[in-house]
Protein backbone atom coordinates (compact mmCIF):
# COMPACT_ATOMS: atom_id res chain seq x y z
CA UNK A 1 0.00 0.00 0.00
CA UNK A 2 3.05 2.23 -0.04
CA UNK A 3 2.06 3.56 -3.44
CA UNK A 4 -1.31 4.97 -2.25
CA UNK A 5 -1.87 8.44 -1.05
CA UNK A 6 -1.38 9.20 2.61
CA UNK A 7 -4.64 9.98 4.37
CA UNK A 8 -3.92 10.41 8.05
CA UNK A 9 -0.65 11.37 9.62
CA UNK A 10 -0.15 11.30 13.38
CA UNK A 11 3.12 12.77 14.52
CA UNK A 12 4.73 12.49 17.92
CA UNK A 13 1.37 12.46 19.66
CA UNK A 14 1.21 12.52 23.45
CA UNK A 15 -1.49 12.86 26.08
CA UNK A 16 -1.03 13.75 29.72
CA UNK A 17 -3.89 13.93 32.21
CA UNK A 18 -3.56 15.77 35.51
CA UNK A 19 -3.70 13.20 38.28
CA UNK A 20 -3.99 14.90 41.66
CA UNK A 21 -0.89 17.06 41.96
CA UNK A 22 1.04 14.69 39.70
CA UNK A 23 0.58 13.92 36.03
CA UNK A 24 -0.42 10.75 34.28
CA UNK A 25 1.23 10.17 30.91
CA UNK A 26 -1.27 8.06 28.98
CA UNK A 27 0.95 7.78 25.92
CA UNK A 28 3.74 9.62 24.15
CA UNK A 29 5.62 9.59 20.87
CA UNK A 30 2.87 8.00 18.81
CA UNK A 31 3.39 8.09 15.03
CA UNK A 32 0.88 6.64 12.61
CA UNK A 33 0.77 6.83 8.83
CA UNK A 34 -2.45 5.62 7.30
CA UNK A 35 -2.82 5.36 3.54
CA UNK A 36 -6.09 5.76 1.68
CA UNK A 37 -7.89 2.43 1.65
CA UNK A 38 -5.83 0.97 4.46
CA UNK A 39 -6.95 -0.46 7.78
CA UNK A 40 -5.14 -0.49 11.09
CA UNK A 41 -6.13 -2.25 14.27
CA UNK A 42 -4.76 -1.01 17.52
CA UNK A 43 -4.61 -3.54 20.33
CA UNK A 44 -3.81 -2.82 23.92
CA UNK A 45 -4.86 -3.66 27.42
CA UNK A 46 -7.58 -1.90 29.32
CA UNK A 47 -6.55 1.58 30.39
CA UNK A 48 -3.60 1.90 28.00
CA UNK A 49 -5.23 4.88 26.26
CA UNK A 50 -6.96 3.42 23.19
CA UNK A 51 -10.15 5.45 23.57
CA UNK A 52 -8.18 8.59 24.37
CA UNK A 53 -6.11 8.13 21.20
CA UNK A 54 -9.23 7.64 19.09
CA UNK A 55 -10.96 10.71 20.52
CA UNK A 56 -7.90 12.78 19.75
CA UNK A 57 -7.80 11.50 16.17
CA UNK A 58 -11.52 12.34 15.90
CA UNK A 59 -10.74 15.94 16.83
CA UNK A 60 -12.82 15.71 20.01
CA UNK A 61 -10.01 15.90 22.57
CA UNK A 62 -6.90 18.04 22.36
CA UNK A 63 -3.59 16.20 22.53
CA UNK A 64 -0.93 17.41 24.95
CA UNK A 65 1.68 17.33 22.21
CA UNK A 66 2.07 16.38 18.57
CA UNK A 67 0.07 17.04 15.43
CA UNK A 68 -2.60 15.41 13.31
CA UNK A 69 -3.10 15.94 9.64
CA UNK A 70 -5.64 14.67 7.17
CA UNK A 71 -4.71 14.80 3.49
CA UNK A 72 -1.80 16.95 4.46
CA UNK A 73 -3.84 19.50 6.36
CA UNK A 74 -3.38 19.92 10.09
CA UNK A 75 -6.64 19.65 12.05
CA UNK A 76 -7.79 19.84 15.65
CA UNK A 77 -11.59 19.72 15.34
CA UNK A 78 -14.11 17.15 14.16
CA UNK A 79 -14.16 16.86 10.38
CA UNK A 80 -16.84 15.50 8.09
CA UNK A 81 -14.22 13.22 6.54
CA UNK A 82 -13.71 11.41 9.83
CA UNK A 83 -16.46 9.34 11.45
CA UNK A 84 -16.43 7.89 14.93
CA UNK A 85 -18.32 4.86 16.26
CA UNK A 86 -18.18 4.33 19.99
CA UNK A 87 -18.87 1.20 21.96
CA UNK A 88 -22.36 2.11 23.11
CA UNK A 89 -23.20 3.63 19.71
CA UNK A 90 -24.32 7.07 20.96
CA UNK A 91 -27.77 6.86 19.39
CA UNK A 92 -30.12 9.39 21.03
CA UNK A 93 -32.94 7.23 22.50
CA UNK A 94 -35.58 9.85 21.59
CA UNK A 95 -34.90 9.60 17.87
CA UNK A 96 -36.39 6.85 15.75
CA UNK A 97 -34.16 4.68 13.59
CA UNK A 98 -34.99 6.82 10.57
CA UNK A 99 -34.19 10.07 12.40
CA UNK A 100 -31.03 8.59 13.86
CA UNK A 101 -29.80 7.57 10.42
CA UNK A 102 -30.49 11.04 9.07
CA UNK A 103 -29.05 12.88 12.08
CA UNK A 104 -25.55 13.58 10.77
CA UNK A 105 -26.84 14.69 7.38
CA UNK A 106 -29.37 16.95 9.10
CA UNK A 107 -26.74 18.51 11.38
CA UNK A 108 -24.37 19.20 8.48
CA UNK A 109 -27.17 20.27 6.18
CA UNK A 110 -26.27 17.65 3.58
CA UNK A 111 -29.13 16.71 1.26
CA UNK A 112 -29.70 12.94 1.00
CA UNK A 113 -32.07 11.14 -1.33
CA UNK A 114 -34.51 8.46 -0.16
CA UNK A 115 -32.84 6.04 -2.59
CA UNK A 116 -29.51 6.55 -0.93
CA UNK A 117 -31.00 5.83 2.47
CA UNK A 118 -32.92 2.80 1.27
CA UNK A 119 -29.81 1.33 -0.36
CA UNK A 120 -27.89 1.76 2.85
CA UNK A 121 -30.66 0.17 4.90
CA UNK A 122 -30.88 -2.84 2.65
CA UNK A 123 -27.12 -3.24 2.58
CA UNK A 124 -26.99 -3.16 6.37
CA UNK A 125 -30.19 -5.21 6.73
CA UNK A 126 -32.01 -2.65 8.83
CA UNK A 127 -35.10 -2.28 6.69
CA UNK A 128 -38.54 -2.01 8.26
CA UNK A 129 -37.23 -0.60 11.53
CA UNK A 130 -37.79 3.06 10.63
CA UNK A 131 -40.26 3.92 13.35
CA UNK A 132 -38.67 2.00 16.18
CA UNK A 133 -36.62 3.64 18.91
CA UNK A 134 -33.10 2.42 19.74
CA UNK A 135 -34.22 0.63 22.91
CA UNK A 136 -36.52 -1.50 20.77
CA UNK A 137 -33.60 -2.85 18.71
CA UNK A 138 -31.12 -5.64 19.34
CA UNK A 139 -27.50 -4.70 20.03
CA UNK A 140 -26.47 -5.73 16.53
CA UNK A 141 -29.24 -3.68 14.92
CA UNK A 142 -28.26 -0.68 16.99
CA UNK A 143 -24.66 -1.03 15.89
CA UNK A 144 -25.74 -1.21 12.23
CA UNK A 145 -27.89 1.90 12.62
CA UNK A 146 -24.85 3.69 14.03
CA UNK A 147 -22.83 2.52 11.02
CA UNK A 148 -25.56 3.58 8.57
CA UNK A 149 -25.66 6.99 10.19
CA UNK A 150 -21.98 7.64 9.50
CA UNK A 151 -21.78 5.96 6.08
CA UNK A 152 -24.46 8.35 4.89
CA UNK A 153 -21.90 11.12 5.44
CA UNK A 154 -19.41 9.37 3.12
CA UNK A 155 -16.41 9.73 5.43
CA UNK A 156 -12.92 8.88 4.25
CA UNK A 157 -11.82 7.54 7.62
CA UNK A 158 -13.73 5.43 10.14
CA UNK A 159 -12.60 5.38 13.76
CA UNK A 160 -14.08 2.49 15.71
CA UNK A 161 -13.80 2.04 19.48
CA UNK A 162 -14.43 -1.62 20.34
CA UNK A 163 -17.60 -1.43 18.28
CA UNK A 164 -18.50 -5.12 18.58
CA UNK A 165 -17.51 -5.77 22.18
CA UNK A 166 -21.06 -5.93 23.52
CA UNK A 167 -22.33 -8.38 20.89
CA UNK A 168 -22.64 -12.16 20.96
CA UNK A 169 -20.02 -14.15 19.03
CA UNK A 170 -22.09 -14.83 15.90
CA UNK A 171 -23.41 -11.28 15.56
CA UNK A 172 -19.92 -9.99 16.09
CA UNK A 173 -18.58 -12.22 13.33
CA UNK A 174 -21.32 -11.08 10.96
CA UNK A 175 -20.63 -7.42 11.65
CA UNK A 176 -16.89 -7.89 11.27
CA UNK A 177 -17.58 -9.35 7.82
CA UNK A 178 -19.89 -6.47 7.04
CA UNK A 179 -17.23 -3.97 8.05
CA UNK A 180 -14.68 -5.62 5.76
CA UNK A 181 -17.21 -5.62 2.91
CA UNK A 182 -17.88 -1.92 3.31
CA UNK A 183 -14.16 -1.34 3.53
CA UNK A 184 -13.53 -3.18 0.27
CA UNK A 185 -16.47 -1.73 -1.65
CA UNK A 186 -16.17 1.86 -0.60
CA UNK A 187 -12.42 2.09 -0.47
CA UNK A 188 -12.45 3.92 2.82
CA UNK A 189 -9.90 3.56 5.57
CA UNK A 190 -10.47 2.60 9.15
CA UNK A 191 -8.73 2.39 12.47
CA UNK A 192 -10.24 0.00 14.94
CA UNK A 193 -9.29 -0.11 18.57
CA UNK A 194 -9.78 -3.36 20.45
CA UNK A 195 -8.47 -5.43 23.32
CA UNK A 196 -9.51 -8.61 21.48
CA UNK A 197 -6.54 -10.26 19.74
CA UNK A 198 -8.75 -12.16 17.29
CA UNK A 199 -10.57 -9.03 16.22
CA UNK A 200 -7.30 -7.14 15.84
CA UNK A 201 -5.87 -9.92 13.65
CA UNK A 202 -9.01 -10.17 11.57
CA UNK A 203 -9.53 -6.51 10.74
CA UNK A 204 -6.17 -4.82 10.54
CA UNK A 205 -3.82 -4.75 7.59
CA UNK A 206 -1.36 -3.62 10.19
CA UNK A 207 -1.74 -4.34 13.90
CA UNK A 208 -0.29 -1.83 16.31
CA UNK A 209 0.25 -2.72 19.91
CA UNK A 210 -0.10 -0.03 22.53
CA UNK A 211 2.13 0.00 25.55
CA UNK A 212 0.47 0.06 28.98
CA UNK A 213 3.07 2.28 30.60
CA UNK A 214 2.68 5.51 28.74
CA UNK A 215 5.13 4.57 25.99
CA UNK A 216 3.00 4.55 22.88
CA UNK A 217 3.12 2.03 20.06
CA UNK A 218 5.48 -0.74 21.15
CA UNK A 219 5.16 -2.99 18.10
CA UNK A 220 3.72 -3.07 14.60
CA UNK A 221 2.77 -6.42 13.09
CA UNK A 222 2.08 -6.76 9.37
CA UNK A 223 -0.99 -8.78 8.54
CA UNK A 224 -1.06 -8.91 4.73
CA UNK A 225 -3.47 -11.82 4.34
CA UNK A 226 -6.32 -10.31 6.35
CA UNK A 227 -8.65 -9.84 3.38
CA UNK A 228 -8.25 -13.31 1.92
CA UNK A 229 -11.29 -15.58 1.75
CA UNK A 230 -11.76 -17.67 4.87
CA UNK A 231 -8.84 -16.00 6.64
CA UNK A 232 -10.46 -16.80 9.98
CA UNK A 233 -9.69 -20.52 9.46
CA UNK A 234 -6.14 -20.30 8.09
CA UNK A 235 -2.98 -21.26 9.97
CA UNK A 236 -1.68 -17.78 9.14
CA UNK A 237 -4.49 -16.26 11.21
CA UNK A 238 -3.75 -18.48 14.21
CA UNK A 239 -0.07 -17.71 13.88
CA UNK A 240 -0.90 -13.98 13.91
CA UNK A 241 -3.00 -14.33 17.05
CA UNK A 242 -0.22 -16.19 18.82
CA UNK A 243 2.33 -13.59 17.77
CA UNK A 244 0.09 -10.74 18.88
CA UNK A 245 -0.62 -12.34 22.22
CA UNK A 246 3.10 -12.62 22.92
CA UNK A 247 3.79 -9.04 21.95
CA UNK A 248 0.90 -7.87 24.14
CA UNK A 249 2.26 -9.76 27.12
CA UNK A 250 5.63 -8.17 26.60
CA UNK A 251 4.13 -4.69 26.43
CA UNK A 252 2.45 -4.96 29.82
Amino acid sequence: MNSSKNLLKVENLSKVFPNGDREKVVFSGINIDLAEGESISIAGQSGCGKTTLLLIMAGLTAPTGGTLSLNGKIYSNPSSDIALVLQDYGLPPWKTVEDNIRLGALLQNIPVSDDEINDLKSHLKIEGLDHLYPHQLSGGQRQRVAIARILLLKPKLLLLDEPFAALDALTRERLQKLLLNIFRQRGLSFIIVTHDVEEASLLGERIMVMDSNGGGISAVIDNPGFLSEGYRDTPEFFERIKQLREVLKASD
Binding site: Q87, G104, L107
Partner: peptide, 14 residues
Protein backbone atom coordinates in the same frame (compact mmCIF):
# COMPACT_ATOMS: atom_id res chain seq x y z
CA UNK B 1 -24.28 10.31 28.59
CA UNK B 2 -20.73 11.32 27.67
CA UNK B 3 -20.52 8.93 24.70
CA UNK B 4 -23.66 10.44 23.20
CA UNK B 5 -22.17 13.93 23.47
CA UNK B 6 -18.96 12.79 21.76
CA UNK B 7 -20.83 10.99 18.98
CA UNK B 8 -23.01 14.03 18.46
CA UNK B 9 -20.04 16.35 18.16
CA UNK B 10 -18.26 14.02 15.76
CA UNK B 11 -21.39 13.99 13.57
CA UNK B 12 -20.85 17.71 13.16
CA UNK B 13 -23.36 19.01 15.70
CA UNK B 14 -22.77 22.56 16.93
Amino acid sequence: NEEMILSFRSLGGN
